[in-house]
Design a protein around this nucleic acid. Structure first.
Lengths: 206, 206
DNA sequence: GTTTGTGAAACGATTCACAGCT
DNA sequence: AGCTGTGAATCGTTTCACAAAC
């Protein structure tokens, strides 16, 4: 498959949400312009994004809401569920486990690890915190598709290496660290301090 | 000031962190190449990014670590502290309040709100959850620079409007919603489901 | 008449490459 | 000799504009 820009993929996810809204409101078709207005972009952008994957619309009519939503789910790989392991049972790690939005969209957190004896054995939403020392053995028995790293920055690379060795093919990293992973593993970073600093920049440069 | 690309600002934040590392290790100067290697980018990129704001280096020598870090803090607006209000005292909201990383980098959460009577009056890290009905009166007495929205998607726009009316100039939005804010208010979105779906896309299209 | 799909044009960001300073 | 600062070249993304389909 041709290389798809990250920004394109993000917009596809958004389009899918908007389509679900339109579907819910009983619309049978939707125009690129309607989708664009909903998402704050342009109709040309919507059509370019979609045309990358095929030709889904009817000229003069627009796109069939249900069909397009289905196709986007296929394209985004959302026709199956994903198993996730969270490493780090601190405030954020615990919050992620208990957050229902992930499950709702097909992502099941099936394991959570920590190295702190005070946290091991606690449960979040019925999920017991396991000793991170057992990461390999737990994942051998219960394989996961993605790993979520929520440990301090210094420990993040070691955890990433262990997740990769355990067969994880995608990592969502919340630690403020620049992780190195093999090419075949995909990596996304969420760095909250970075977002706040970007806001700070705009406040300082108005 | 000329328009600065968002990607540039993100890299400046990263450069600042790397400079702090180099400073900590006692380096007096650092080359664009050293910074680039540390951050996984190119030396030309580093020089372009910096040259946007001035000429900080010495040819043949590199950049003075301490001076450049200071300048980057000025550019990013990090020479002052910022007061933040969090709206939504659920799992994520609570986790943010208790997360020490923000305070460490100059962002103080001084108020947290929720509409759930079961949560109002609870404290996180000594900070009492206030009724969101009191948002305007609390912020009138204790003004904040930034608002953090951690409420369900349907409520996010109303909260954004109220924060803006209360004088907030920057918003960090965790709700899965496309918020409309006036031009003079800066907005950053963090959408975790979107990140997971981007990972899902790469898994589905390898 | 409406709206898609798509080449072409415009724009923006990154990389190249080198003159100029230390 | 080493490394910055930057104009020029390249690359990638977005917008334009219109022929084709309904």
């Amino acid at each position: 498959m041709r290389k798809v820009a990250d920004s394109t993929v993000r917009r596809l996810s958004l389009y899918l949400r908007y389509l679900e809204e339109f579907e819910h409101r009983g619309h049978a078709t939707v125009s690129s312009d309607a989708l664009a207005t909903r998402g704050g972009t342009t109709s040309a952008q919507v059509r370019k994004d979609l045309s990358f994957f095929g030709s889904f619309g009817k000229r003069g009519l627009g796109y069939p809401v249900g069909d397009l939503a289905r196709r986007l789910r296929e394209i985004l790989g959302l026709t199956r569920r994903y198993q996730l392991a969270v490493v780090g049972a601190g405030k954020i790690g615990g919050a992620l486990v208990q957050y229902r939005g992930f499950r709702l969209r097909g992502f099941d957190i099936v394991a959570i690890f920590d190295s702190d004896p005070a946290k091991i054995g606690r449960t979040f939403d019925g999920l017991e915190v396991r000793d991170v020392a057992e990461l390999e053995s737990v994942l051998a028995e219960q394989p996961v598709d993605m790993g979520v790293i929520v440990v301090p920055g210094e420990q993040a690379q070691v955890i990433a290496d262990r997740l990769v060795a355990a067969g994880v093919k995608a990592i969502l990293n919340f630690a403020p660290a620049q992780l190195a992973v093999p090419d075949e593993v995909s990596l996304k970073n969420v760095n909250l301090a970075l977002e706040l600093e970007a806001l700070s920049f705009t406040l300082a440069n108005r």
